[in-house]
């Protein structure tokens, strides 16, 4: 399989490919950064999941809580190493690349977190929060940091005056924007949104989703949008994957999955959406 993947290494290779990845929890030696507390994702294993994501595509990943969506998202982000199976970025195994290419490949995929409060270091002001990584990686010079951060803040709908604020001085919606700005700062190609809007109230949700849509168009971003909210996923995605108990049970173009669900689990998921009765 590896040989085939390497031959496929061409412009036509999908941006991200997961080939039959599996992850069981409980075996700490398999955790990629064992020094970091990933043992908290004690959900069920990801079981033999394959997926492809083309450049510019938005892929929705739906499923109930605990089905392994977040774990799959972190495997896709390269933060967790699967027990078996392969993760290919632009047709290549990132771990085989040289240091510079590896770093670029890591920066190319950024996570947007559900809990925007815990996802932002409480001791850093916006300027360092957003500007640290681009300076460390030499994307910008330290002297350009402030301007760079102001640009990003304005792009995500925050004010230039917010640059010296700490995370706790922002509202939930603003913190979500701050998290998006931090990801954008390293010029990624793929955003993995892990329940990115789930914690926000509905009107703010809509604003943040519209922001993501406009950023997607402007920067040609690909997105893996993980959510339990079927309506949000439908609104955003080109294709949808339905996950249940660690496996992908159904995949296809968004409208066909929503109109003609093939799998019984998808049908029950769709039927569980509360609707207003017709008057």
């Amino acid at each position: 399989m590896t040989a085939a993947a390497n031959q496929n290494h061409s412009i036509s290779a999908p941006l991200l490919q997961l080939q039959e990845v599996s992850l069981r929890y409980g075996d700490k030696s398999k955790i990629s950064f064992k020094s970091i507390g990933y043992d908290k994702y004690s959900g069920p294993a990801v079981d033999q999941v394959s997926l492809q994501l083309a450049a510019g595509e938005t892929l929705g990943l739906v499923g109930e809580s605990g089905c392994g969506k977040s774990t799959l998202g972190r495997i896709a982000a390269g933060l967790l190493l699967p027990d078996s199976g392969q993760r290919l970025w632009c047709g290549e195994d990132v771990r085989q690349l040289d240091a510079a290419a590896q770093r670029r490949a890591r920066l190319d995929v950024q996570l947007i977190f559900q809990n925007s409060h815990a996802a932002l270091n409480p001791r850093l002001r916006s300027e360092q929060l957003i500007g640290e990584a681009p300076v460390v990686h030499g994307l910008i010079r330290a002297s350009e940091r402030r301007d760079w951060v102001i640009q990003l803040l304005q792009r995500v709908g925050l004010d230039a005056s917010h640059i010296d604020r700490y995370p706790h001085q922002f509202s939930g919606g603003q913190r979500a924007r701050l998290g998006i700005a931090r990801a954008l700062a390293v010029q990624p190609r793929l955003l993995i949104c892990d329940e990115a809007v789930a914690a926000l109230d509905v009107s703010v949700q809509a604003q943040v989703i519209n922001l993501l849509l406009s950023l997607r168009a402007e920067f040609g971003l690909s997105m893996l949008f993980i959510s339990h909210d079927l309506d949000v996923v439908r609104h955003l995605s080109d294709r949808v994957l339905v996950m249940h108990a660690g496996q992908i049970v159904e995949s296809g173009a968004t409208e066909s999955v929503y109109h003609q669900p093939q799998h019984a689990y998808t049908r029950s998921l769709l039927e569980s959406i509360p609707r207003l009765a017709r008057i």
């Binding site: 507390g37 950024q110 977190f113 996802a119 270091n121 998290g179 390293v186």
Partner: peptide, 28 residues
Amino acid sequence: ERGREYIEAARCLALPGWRILLWHLLPN
């Protein structure tokens, strides 16, 4: 603290380990 998402985010931003330790974990 090291189990919180901001450390995960720092990992995702490919910051060097010593930097995460000294600048993100330690102050908290």
